[in-house]
């Protein structure tokens, strides 16, 4: 009977091959070729130049991974406590809080990011607020400078803020899910065995929520490292990220899908390696504790 049902998987396996595996293979082919002009038009020619020439973009790689890392760490620092506190609330509160976290996803993320532009502009709401509160004149008096606004938009800080803002729910949700599933008796058992609140957290709650942290980190880091809309809107073109670079090769000014494919491949490989290392690190952690 089981075998009969196994056939249900067959169409999907084909679908996956067509729309998941083959596209990546095509991308691989693109990344290893270049377009050359021939008598009858253009043709592909094997080339590793896409990769060797990529050294030019090392800065962009560095910046993307750095900003994404910072955003991920901030998300974790905010998201974990919030998820933890939420998981300890009553069921009614939890339900409302969950709904409130899901809700913003229904507001288009570009619009939400755009809204930050209005807040962060030199003349924006935040600077106006600072002006009214006298923060800016205080700053001028303290440092002896003469500014009439803080430069917030079009900085790397704004890009990180945009990432944190957009992806924070993706950090909170998996951690929260793991924490609510955590057997309450385990923490009681730890208390019983002499662990105070801090020790319970460090020795039981935290290690048991590692899986939530890992999926949260993945869900924040991957879109952060590859974003192009956020860096475009809040970074004002000064914070070029991998996503901008790739988009630029396919739909932007610097049309070169071969290079774009190569950058995508490299990014994909680095991300996968990061994730593998992190997963391994997670497991390794567990083993270390077990010894």
């Amino acid at each position: 009977m089981r075998n009969k049902r196994a056939w249900f998987a067959f169409p999907y396996v084909i679908w996956m091959a067509l729309f998941v595996v083959i596209p990546i293979l095509i991308m691989l082919v693109y990344s290893l070729t270049a377009e050359v002009e021939t008598a009858s038009g253009t043709a592909f020619e094997g080339s590793v130049e896409n990769f060797t020439g990529m050294t030019l973009y090392m800065n962009v790689f560095g910046r993307s991974f750095w900003l994404a890392l910072v955003a991920t760490v901030i998300c974790l620092l905010i998201g974990y406590p919030v998820a933890y506190l939420m998981s300890r609330e009553g069921p009614g509160f939890q339900r409302v809080a969950m709904a409130l976290i899901m809700l913003p996803m229904w507001m288009n993320f570009l619009l939400r990011t755009y809204s930050w532009m209005a807040i962060l502009e030199n003349n924006g709401l935040l600077n106006q607020l600072f002006q009214k509160l006298g923060v800016i004149s205080l700053y001028n008096r303290l440092t002896g400078s003469d500014i009439d606004h803080f430069q917030m938009i079009r900085t790397s800080g704004a890009v990180v803020l945009g990432m944190v803002y957009n992806y924070l729910p993706f950090m909170i949700l998996p951690i929260y899910t793991v924490l609510t599933k955590l057997d309450h008796r385990l923490t009681e058992a730890a208390e019983d065995l002499g662990a105070n609140a801090a020790a319970v957290f460090r020795r039981v709650t935290l290690p048991l929520s590692v899986s939530g942290i890992i999926s949260g980190v993945t869900m924040v880091f991957v879109p952060s490292v590859s974003t192009f809309a956020i860096s475009r809107l809040l970074g004002g073109g000064t914070q070029m990220m991998l996503g901008d670079l790739i988009e630029n090769q396919f739909l932007g000014g610097a049309y070169n899908p071969h290079l774009g494919a190569a950058i995508s491949m490299v990014m994909m490989v680095i991300v996968v390696i990061c994730m593998l290392v992190m997963n391994h690190f997670g497991d390794g952690e567990e083993e270390a504790v077990m010894l």
Binding site: L186, E188, A189, A190, G194, P207
Partner: peptide, 19 residues
């Protein structure tokens, strides 16, 4: 608090740490 009591418990279904 429990962690300062000279009392220990064997829990129903044991509550062993799975990690």
């Amino acid at each position: 608090p429990p962690y300062r009591r000279q009392v220990n418990t064997v829990f129903q279904k044991y509550a062993l740490f799975p990690h």
